[in-house]
Design a protein around this nucleic acid. Sequence first.
DNA 1: TGTACATCAGTGAACGCGCGTTCACTGATGTAC
DNA 2: TGTACATCAGTGAACGCGCGTTCACTGATGTAC
Lengths: 202, 202
Amino acid sequence: MKKGYHHGNLRQALVDAALELIAAQGPNGFTLSEAAKTADVTPAAVYRHFAGREDLIAEVARQGFDIFAALMEFAYSNGQPSPLAAFEATGRAYLAFARKYPGHYMAMFESGLNLAAHPQVGEVAMRAKAVQDRAAAGLAAQLPEGRRPPAAMFSAHVWAMSHGVVELFMRGQNRSPFPPEDLLETGIGIYLRGLGLLSPDK
Amino acid sequence: MKKGYHHGNLRQALVDAALELIAAQGPNGFTLSEAAKTADVTPAAVYRHFAGREDLIAEVARQGFDIFAALMEFAYSNGQPSPLAAFEATGRAYLAFARKYPGHYMAMFESGLNLAAHPQVGEVAMRAKAVQDRAAAGLAAQLPEGRRPPAAMFSAHVWAMSHGVVELFMRGQNRSPFPPEDLLETGIGIYLRGLGLLSPDK
DNA sequence: TGTACATCAGTGAACGCGCGTTCACTGATGTAC
DNA sequence: TGTACATCAGTGAACGCGCGTTCACTGATGTAC
């Protein structure tokens, strides 16, 4: 990390501080002042780099969606080696992201950030969502037309279960005898079998 | 509503005020002072009925779990007329509760309330969870033993999808072409088909 | 029924606190000559 | 290379605010005689 002007990379240092605080205390426990203190800087210094508190959270979320989109792209890898394998990989990537980047995840999905008020964030979020949709559509295309659910519905189901597993069993105080990763893997497996995309005896 | 002593039912009036504020501004937007003001009372008056801010939220959550448990009991109705019908009814009840009692739902699942620190709340929460588990177990019992997933896993899957649908598509800013109720109904339907509990051609 | 008294729900003022934000400033860095 | 100057990242003090909580109080209600 190069030390440039006074602090060097204060902007990113503040984002990192916010991430740490959000991960530790939740998206609403974090304060601008505390982030500044964590970065060894006066609260006023924050305003050289961000319009205010909300703008800082938005940047955290934006970086999160960016990483998330890249991870999903990588997992999906254009549907290779098969639509099914690619789809399952995105499911695993979702949970891996939530586990590895808890601060980002909370800023993205639990901070109540208004995406419409931050178009640049919304744009990156859309990019990530597009990967999920593509993965779902690719898999749905394997079904005979008559019994093919709309890809948007398909995608929503899987997203809902993924998000639910994260919120309830990875973040929350709810205990399950099964690790979140296993829960999601088996849950999606059963769901795909219901769609006829997995053989019933697997 | 009887007017008893000075205010009458200030305790419940405060709970109701909190519910209104939580539903409007989220579980962390609510403040003790604002709740007092909404109930036309000085903030200090709150301390005649609650130990503090957290205790008030806990009571909101407790009442929520109470209503929730009753609703689930009613929907389940001891597995009548059939395990499948009863199970599906609990799924619908979950979403109906989230829609009809948003303030309660948020206090219960989004406030970050520490259940361990409020044993009486945890107890009622457990009671609600027990209904879900019973519904899942009853349905799982219909499967041949070899291909029967643990009821706890089964239950977790459905809970995760339900919670995910609420958070993403009922509360959140995410749009789906399908109403949350339809999303959950179809999602659970496909899942049950995957378990072999619904015929594949329904 | 009427009076004196006890209770205790709610008041009003005050507290210390940390918050987000502003502003004039200062002093380290980069640049022109 | 050295000096004078411009830039602008971060400082330090101050602000108004609403928060949760405390405390001595008051006055409406319930009760004993």
